[in-house]
């Protein structure tokens, strides 16, 4: 049961981070970052399994592969951007966090453009 591991280690790391934050705040940030990456690596294995199932389903339903890969890219960008922004916000750098989120949003919109144009063309074709 990974959740027990993650919660247990998370609590221990939180106590250590609070302990270190008193004297050396930069180590607390590095500690939080280290633990965040560790949990992320654990989760990515599970997400990989979910994605492979989605890929098989979309292949069976003959959905074009392009939409699924774009969806995955958007998911990846959202994941990483939120991760970085949250670490920066914990360290007290709200401005940097909002810049990271802004970049993430812009990149996601950029990825969504082809699908948007595809939908609009389909709608126009439907009109008499």
């Amino acid at each position: 049961m990974e959740v027990l591991q993650v919660v247990g280690i998370g609590l221990v790391i939180t106590v250590l981070a609070v302990l270190i934050r008193g004297q050396r705040p930069e180590f607390a940030v590095l500690l939080a970052l280290g633990f965040g990456i560790l949990v992320f690596l654990l989760i990515l294995d599970k997400v990989g399994v979910v994605i492979s199932v989605f890929r098989d389903l979309s292949r069976k339903a003959q959905i074009e592969d392009f939409y699924l890969t774009t969806l995955l890219k958007v998911l990846g960008i959202a994941y990483v951007a939120e991760f970085g922004a949250q670490i920066c916000r914990d360290a007290g750098e709200g401005a940097i966090a909002s810049k990271i989120e802004l970049a993430g949003k812009v990149l996601i919109v950029l990825l969504a453009l082809p699908i948007l144009t595809g939908i609009l063309e389909a709608v126009v074709r439907l009109l008499p």
Binding site: R24, E26, F27, L30, L33, G34, I37, L38, F40, L41, L44, V47, G48, I51, T69, L72, K73, L75, G76, I77, Y79, V80
Partner: peptide, 26 residues
């Protein structure tokens, strides 16, 4: 101390990025 720990964390970040790139085809 900060430099040493930063090197360790940056290696971890590198591993994370390669993992994300493989899972999300980013």
């Amino acid at each position: 101390g900060v430099v040493v720990v930063l090197i360790m964390v940056v290696q971890l970040i590198g591993e994370l990025y390669s993992m994300v790139r493989s899972v999300f085809h980013l």
